[in-house]
Amino acid sequence: MAGRRRVPGASVVALCLLLVSLVACGGGPAGDRVRAEVQALLDRRAGAVLDRDPAAYARTGTRDGYARLRAVPLADWSYRLTSLHRSGDTATASADLGYRVAGYDRSPVVTARTLRLSRDGDGRWAVESERPAEKSGQQLWDQGAVRAVTGSRSLVLGVGRPAEELRGYAELADRAVPAVSEAWGTRWPRRLVLLVPQSLEGMAGLLGSPASSYRGIAAVTTGETGTGARAPADRIIVNPDAFGVLGDSGRQVVLTHETTHVATRAHTTDATPLWLSEGLADWAGYRGTGRTPAEAAPELAHAVDRGEVPSRLPDDEDFRFAGAAGRLARAYESGWTACRLIADQWGEERLRGFYRAVGAHGRREGAVETAMRDVLGTTPEDFTRRWRDYLRTELG
């Protein structure tokens, strides 16, 4: 008939839309209802964690996980459902887990999680499993039951490590906090959270990276740079394999170094080169230890003895953990000697001011040049010349 055309596939499209609404594979009333049911399930699960209620937790599904994280002092724990893929009576949910450690985190730590769900004959959903989402690092309780030790300024959380060992970490951390405050100032939280996994592999799992990237690295600090006062507390993650071979003084230097990263985090931005951030952390770590430059910078001292004085300060690429060990050591030692030079010739207050000025620049281009001009009254070329002379004098 004139004026009427049959649209091929129109009935198929209509049927597919009806099926979508019925089985909740997408939007629509049924899909929205299932999402609401799953979010409510996750809310109940989070409430059970905060209430320390194992029975309520068990009513939401698998009990795995509850006992492992029971020792962690939590101020907040919540899930935000981000996606849901359902197939009949099973589903896979993606959610952002946000949590705060009581007394330490000012803002939530947020991590992506994947949850497997099932629905019983009465239509109730339950959690079958929970794990880190793809490309997300593990949380410590993913690796086993967490043991907690509290210091005067620190919280140490460990898996598979004896309580006496964890107390030793707390003592190191408690000494590091005042040492860093003396070197940097007191305008930072002055509280630390240390994570001590069972092995190097556990450390790598927390960082979501291959273990080979951190072999020989005693500890690292995680956190968002330049995020200001509302940033969540950093985590100092220990590699017990490498940390265990250090002497007492070496352990203290490492913990003080990492604590400096926590203290300076709000002033460390994309504008801050690694030679400055790592150099300042080493400067604070070695400050007051009585270590001579040759003792603190042996690789660089050997290079100077061979007449191989570096022609430039290290760039960020020189600090790659996966690079040659000697190159990495010289990069750290170069940053340390550069910051030590500023403290010696311009004073510690100028060193702190220089660090803050570089971070405040906002972008890498021009940051060091501007701060050297405004704070130190010099240029990168003149500073590099002074630094090379300093290496010959202090290490030669």
Rank of each mutant, 00 (worst) to 15 (best):
T90G: 10
L81P: 05
E130N: 05
A179R: 15
A112L: 02
L195Y: 01
S152M: 03
G185T: 14
W77F: 12
Y99C: 01
R131V: 07
W141N: 00
G65N: 01
T150Q: 15
L195R: 06
S154E: 03
L140N: 09
G103D: 02
L117E: 07
Y79L: 05
L157I: 11
R124L: 15
V156H: 03
D142Q: 00
P162L: 04
E171L: 13
S83N: 12
A163N: 06
A126K: 05
L97W: 01
S87D: 11
A148G: 09
V101Q: 02
D76L: 09
G202H: 07
D142F: 03
S94G: 13
D174S: 09
E130H: 07
T186M: 02
D120V: 01
T111L: 12
Y99N: 00
L84K: 13
A71W: 00
D174G: 06
G158F: 11
S78I: 02
A170G: 04
W184T: 09
T186Q: 08
E182S: 09
V159P: 05
A163S: 10
P178C: 06
Y79E: 07
A93C: 12
Q138R: 13
A112K: 10
T90D: 03
L157V: 11
R116Y: 01
R100A: 11
V110H: 01
A71D: 00
T92C: 03
R63L: 05
L115E: 07
W141M: 09
T150R: 15
G137H: 11
L195E: 00
G61H: 06
R63V: 10
G185N: 13
D89Q: 14
L192D: 04
L192C: 04
V196I: 05
L192Y: 03
E134T: 14
V109T: 14
Y169E: 03
A145M: 01
E171V: 15
G123T: 05
G103M: 04
D174R: 00
T92R: 15
G61S: 06
E134S: 15
R80A: 14
L194P: 04
R119T: 02
R161Y: 00
G160F: 06
A126L: 12
V177H: 02
A126P: 11
S78Q: 13
S136T: 12
R147P: 07
A95V: 14
A126S: 15
S136M: 08
V149Y: 04
Q143E: 08
E130C: 08
R106L: 01
V149Q: 08
R191Q: 14
S181K: 10
Y79S: 04
L115Y: 01
L81V: 03
L200C: 03
Y104S: 07
A148R: 08
G103R: 06
V180C: 11
V101D: 00
D76H: 01
D142H: 08
P189L: 05
E182Y: 13
S118V: 10
R175Y: 02
W125G: 10
G158L: 11
G160L: 04
R116D: 14
S87Y: 11
L140Q: 04
G65W: 09
M203Y: 02
G144S: 12
S152C: 10
L192P: 09
L192T: 05
A204M: 09
V196S: 00
Q139K: 12
W141V: 00
A183Q: 07
L157P: 06
A176C: 09
G202D: 05
A163C: 08
D89V: 13
H85C: 01
A145D: 02
A163H: 12
D122E: 08
S129H: 08
V159G: 00
R116S: 05
